[in-house]
Amino acid sequence: MNEAGSAFPGLSLDCRGMKCPRPIIEVGRRISEVGVGAVLELLADDPAAGPDLAAWCRMRGQTLLDSDPPRFLVRRES
């Protein structure tokens, strides 16, 4: 399931069925649970999740490693 070893998620959030901004709120609340340099996986099927996660990463200085709805990978940079 996790094809890239470096992208092995330290935490997975299943936010399928939730409407935006809920999935982004969850990511914001729980990103601190993974270490700096580690990866958080988000599962979300709201159509706004992709663009909003990308915008969140830009605003918060994090990296969106992969955007393949409904699966998204974020690396914590700070």
């Binding site: 935006c20 901004p21 982004i24 706004a48 992709g50 663009p51 909003d52 990308a54 915008a55 969140w56 830009r58 605003m59």
Partner: peptide, 10 residues
């Protein structure tokens, strides 16, 4: 907003 990469919620 999506095309510009602007946050779409709120």
């Amino acid at each position: 907003l999506a095309a510009m990469g602007t946050l779409t919620h709120g």
